[in-house]
Amino acid sequence: MIIGERKKVSEIAEMLAGKKKILVSGCRTCVAICMAGGEKEVSELSSALMLISDRDGLGWKMEENVVERQCEKEWVREIDDKIRNADAIVSLACGLGAQTVADMYPEKEVYPGLNTTFLGVPEEQGVWSEKCLACGECIIHTTGGICPVSRCAKSMRNGPCGGSSNGKCEVDPDTDCAWVAIYDRLKLQGRLDMMTDVIEPKDWSKSHSGGRRKIVRKDLLIQPTDSSGKEVVE
């Protein structure tokens, strides 16, 4: 899922200088599950901003709400009146939710209340870790089901670098070396021979390096006129 981390309240408050009617809008999907932008966090942020407003006499009028999926227009439309009513929207969704609102209401100012940090998984209560870079070409079947592109600090394709120390990454001694994990996994599976071939460089053109990516599934399009993939802004 998409993992996010709320910005500091003081940083958010600073962005809102001069605004009056502020809508804090969360999302019930990924950021709710990683406890950064769901119902509870929306309410906490609203209260914290209200306290700042009262303390500093800013006169903010706070409004809050949580959208089912802020990255989908259908769900955002449900809070149309609230958005139109606000002069600043603090999105506690990921960058996708925040931009969906911003693109749907180009006259409105949207402020990011959280930083979209990575694609990851919950490891245990309160711990999330990155496991995918959305590089556009998955190769984990060659690496024991472990992604070296995201889990190795250098995205190595040919085994661990010389900084792998006691199974940990040179960048952070609390982070497991992805390639030690891959080695152990392939050893367990009796497939260590997979680590003896010289692996060709990755084709980064399938990642963001190839430019902004877009998928158009013609079989799913409702309006065939959209088949060029041209963006339709409502």
Partner: peptide
């Protein structure tokens, strides 16, 4: 090239040099 016999996984280091 460089090779580090002192980095983990130790038993992979000679194989890596072969690569």
């Amino acid at each position: 090239a460089a090779e580090n016999p002192f980095a983990t996984p130790y038993e992979y280091r000679a194989i890596r040099m072969a690569k």
